[in-house]
């Protein structure tokens, strides 16, 4: 159910997510200190390749990590296995990638 490949993917994605979460929260706290409006925040993020790359990698890491984690929970609690379990894992990953991708492009694309 969880082989070395999936285990490493989940651990490595967690390795990336840790600093991403800290930077995300730190920037949020810093950015609102002066009372920034939504428009002013979007003015800084839209068109920024740096923020696009940052949040794109964040979304990829979250999608991979969550899909594998939910795969374990679904298998152990609901007994789903084999093709059905793999299909569910991939579906969760693709849905999160799509939703996260939409958010990232909306915030960083001009």
């Amino acid at each position: 159910m969880l082989d070395i490949r999936l285990y490493m993917l989940q651990r490595l994605s967690a390795l990336f997510m840790g600093p991403f979460v800290l930077i995300h929260i730190a920037v949020m706290i810093y950015a609102i200190q002066g009372g920034l409006s939504t428009g002013e925040i979007l003015g800084r993020t839209q068109g920024s390749v740096t923020w696009f790359l940052f949040y794109a990698m964040f979304v990829i890491a979250v999608s991979v990590h969550s899909a594998i984690g939910l795969r374990v929970i679904v298998h152990e609690f609901l007994g789903l296995k084999g093709f059905a379990l793999s299909t569910l894992t991939w579906t969760i990953c693709v849905v999160l990638l799509f939703m996260g991708g939409r958010a990232v492009t909306a915030v960083t694309m001009l």
Binding site: I4, L6, Y7
Partner: peptide, 9 residues
């Protein structure tokens, strides 16, 4: 021990 039922579970 690295297969689907291995230590990583």
């Amino acid at each position: 021990v690295s297969g689907t039922g291995g230590c990583h579970n």
